[in-house]
Amino acid sequence: MSDIGTFKRDEAGPGLGSGQGEAGFGDFVQLLKPRVMSLVVFTGLVGLLVAPVRLHPVEAFAAILFIALGAGASGALNMWWDADIDRVMRRTQSRPVPSGRIQPGEALGLGLALSGISVVMLALAANLLAAALLAFTIFFYAVVYTMWLKRWTPQNIVIGGAAGAFPPMIGWVAATGHVGLEAVLMFALIFMWTPPHFWSLALFINSDYHKANVPMLTVTHGRRATRNHILAYTLLLAPVPVWAALTSIGGPLTLAVTLALNAVFILGAWRIWRRDEAMAEADGYRVEKRFFTFSLFYLFLHFAAYLAELALRPWGLGGWAAVG
């Protein structure tokens, strides 16, 4: 792994600037990583809605819009910098920059423009603290994770996971103007969830990371160590949503959902841990793929439960006051 971090910004290489097709509107949308953006919007919206302060609907819409633009800015900057890696990895070769449909300078310009717009407008629509958190999130993802951690350390996903964990905290701060315990726990839920989620993916696409010399844990320490880490982080994750379920954003429904999801998630991590590579290869990494897919539901259903608890409160059914 001695050549990790020595990638050159070969912007004139194959697939870049070679005129391989014109960029359409969909290419610019893809540049913003819409699937990641959808998760950011959802968790940010939940953070905003479950906060104890209610924003006017127009203010709330504006806050979420600018949080989404900030996420899109991060995605564009990530695709600009990672074009050399994306060109090598099979699952990313068709992205707009490595395929040549969008020039690197266009991706950089769009990312910087959206960064400035999103931060300034969130400050005007909500408050300075929310805008500062958004600015830090963009910087952390684009610079700390993309330019440094991803290429230098197998802890890239562990530390870099903070970037994806900030949206519910930003939503909470946009509504309240301060960081509360509930916001910290929502952040911690995503932060601790990220390593087992991505490491399970790395187990069955490891060849891509090898080709691109990305120091994912599967590359630097092997799949056995990765399986150990998945189980360890899953066990460390489990208490976080339980604690969140016992706060003002939770209630009996949330606690029940959390306990059920934790049971399935821990069981899945244990099944991954007890397998060796011969078993995994024999069935095409079926258990690992199922765990990865369920991890998406794990996160979504937790945040959906917070919303459901909020929706039940007008009828006296949501929150711990309902059983008090």
Rank of each mutant, 00 (worst) to 15 (best):
D3E: 15
G5H: 12
T6D: 13
T6Q: 14
F7R: 15
R9Y: 15
G17D: 09
D27M: 08
L31M: 00
L31Q: 03
K33H: 13
M37P: 10
S38F: 10
V41A: 13
V41Q: 08
T43K: 08
G44V: 08
G44I: 10
V46I: 14
L48V: 05
L49F: 08
V50A: 06
V53L: 06
L55M: 14
P57D: 02
V58R: 06
E59L: 10
A60C: 05
F61D: 07
F61P: 01
A63F: 01
L65G: 00
F66W: 12
A68I: 01
A68T: 00
A73K: 09
S74M: 06
W81S: 15
D82V: 02
R87Y: 10
V88R: 12
R90L: 15
R91P: 01
T92V: 10
S94K: 14
S94G: 03
P96C: 02
V97G: 00
I102P: 00
E106A: 11
L110W: 08
V119R: 04
V120P: 00
A123C: 07
A126H: 00
A126K: 04
L128N: 01
L129N: 13
L129T: 05
L129I: 12
V143Y: 14
V144S: 09
K150P: 06
I157P: 13
G161P: 06
G161A: 11
F166E: 00
F166V: 15
I170Y: 11
G171Y: 10
W172G: 01
V173F: 08
A174K: 01
T176R: 02
T176W: 07
V184P: 04
I190P: 05
F191I: 03
W193S: 03
T194I: 04
P195A: 14
W199G: 04
S207L: 09
D208R: 12
K211Q: 14
V219P: 02
T220V: 15
R224F: 02
T226I: 09
I230C: 05
T234E: 08
T234I: 06
A238F: 05
P239V: 02
V240E: 07
S248Q: 14
L253S: 00
T254A: 13
V257I: 15
V257P: 07
F265K: 01
A269W: 05
W270I: 11
I272H: 09
I272Q: 14
R274Y: 02
D276V: 02
E277Q: 06
A278F: 10
D283M: 02
V287E: 11
V287L: 09
E288K: 09
E288S: 14
F291N: 01
F292S: 12
F292Q: 06
S295L: 10
Y298N: 03
H302Y: 02
F303P: 11
A305G: 07
L310V: 06
R313C: 01
L317N: 01
G319S: 11
W320K: 06
A321V: 11
A322S: 15
